[in-house]
Amino acid sequence: MDNNIEIIGFVAAFLTTAAFLPQVYKTWKTKDVTGLSLPMLLMFFTGIILWLIYAFYINSPSMIMANSITVVSSFFLIYFKIRYQKK
């Protein structure tokens, strides 16, 4: 049963993480960050780091994988927001 639950976790992890990647790519290519909110990105980033800590604590490979990728992706969006915003 645990194996089936972890498979569901990996499918969910793939879908939620993959859904985030087009925004990172679009922002990188266009350098348009006007639609991105820095406070939202910082809260999201903090939340993902907490989810990652939790995932390690409960030893969930699917959550560790998804949140690791999402931490990197959201970091890039924060970086792009700071670097490309018009002053």
Rank of each mutant, 00 (worst) to 15 (best):
F10C: 11
M65S: 14
K87H: 10
Y57C: 13
P22W: 03
Y79E: 06
A12D: 02
Y79C: 07
T16M: 12
M65D: 06
V33P: 02
V24M: 05
P22G: 06
T16E: 09
T27V: 06
F20C: 12
D2K: 14
T70F: 03
Y79N: 05
Q23E: 03
M63C: 08
L52Y: 04
T27W: 04
Q85T: 12
T34E: 15
N59F: 09
D32E: 07
L41N: 01
A18G: 12
A12R: 01
S73Y: 02
L41G: 02
Q23V: 01
W51I: 02
S68T: 03
F80L: 02
S60L: 04
A13C: 11
W28M: 13
N4L: 14
V11E: 10
W28D: 09
A18S: 14
M65R: 04
V24I: 08
S37N: 06
M40A: 13
Y25N: 14
T70I: 07
F14G: 09
F10I: 11
T34Y: 13
N67G: 05
P22F: 04
S68M: 01
I78D: 02
N59R: 14
Y84N: 01
T30P: 05
A66G: 02
M63T: 03
M1F: 13
Y79W: 11
P61C: 04
R83S: 12
N67I: 00
N3I: 14
S60H: 02
P61W: 01
T30H: 04
I64A: 03
F14S: 12
I82C: 03
